[in-house]
Amino acid sequence: MTRIRVGLLPSAVMMAGTMPAPKIKDPATGEIATDRDSGENLYTVTAMLMEDGRAEIMKITVPQSGLPEGLQPGRALRPVDLFATPWARIFNGSLSDGVAYRASALELVQ
């Protein structure tokens, strides 16, 4: 799968929109997704990216060890090693597509 490194402009501001939530692998069983290499539980954080007069909402997947203490909605943050992975699938005859974001960690910005 293609992974694309995401570089943010120095003027970019990112803010947490939600508390971290476990990433669910299988909704039927409630199984939590884990990192393929480390086996660590994965979490998602919804973040708002404001850059060059526009705003985007992103869901970023982060391993549990990459979540900082004190992460709350409204806190400014910076993703570490942010990558984007485009995806597409056909479900019930309809095409769904999007971009999945993954960071090795989130850092709080003072």
Rank of each mutant, 00 (worst) to 15 (best):
V80Q: 11
E56G: 04
V6K: 06
S38V: 01
E69I: 12
A33D: 10
A76C: 13
R78M: 08
I60L: 13
Q110V: 06
G93A: 05
V99E: 13
M14R: 02
I4C: 05
V13G: 09
L8R: 07
M19P: 00
P68V: 05
V109K: 03
S38F: 04
A47T: 15
M15G: 04
A103I: 03
R5A: 15
T34V: 13
D97V: 00
R78G: 02
G74M: 11
K25S: 15
G7H: 14
I57Y: 06
W87T: 06
E107H: 10
F83P: 02
D35Q: 06
V80W: 02
A100I: 00
I57S: 14
D52I: 06
A84E: 06
T2L: 14
Y43Q: 03
T18M: 10
T44W: 03
L71N: 11
L95K: 14
S11H: 08
G7D: 15
T61L: 03
M48S: 13
V6A: 01
N92M: 12
I90Q: 12
A21C: 06
P27S: 12
P79R: 11
V80H: 08
R36G: 13
M19G: 06
P73L: 05
V62G: 03
S38W: 00
V62I: 15
R36T: 10
M19E: 14
V80M: 07
S104K: 09
T44Y: 07
R89K: 15
L95F: 01
A88P: 00
P27Y: 12
T29Q: 06
A55H: 08
R89T: 12
T2G: 09
M58H: 09
R5W: 00
Q110Y: 04
P68M: 07
A47K: 08
L106M: 05
A88C: 13
A84I: 04
F83H: 09
S96M: 10
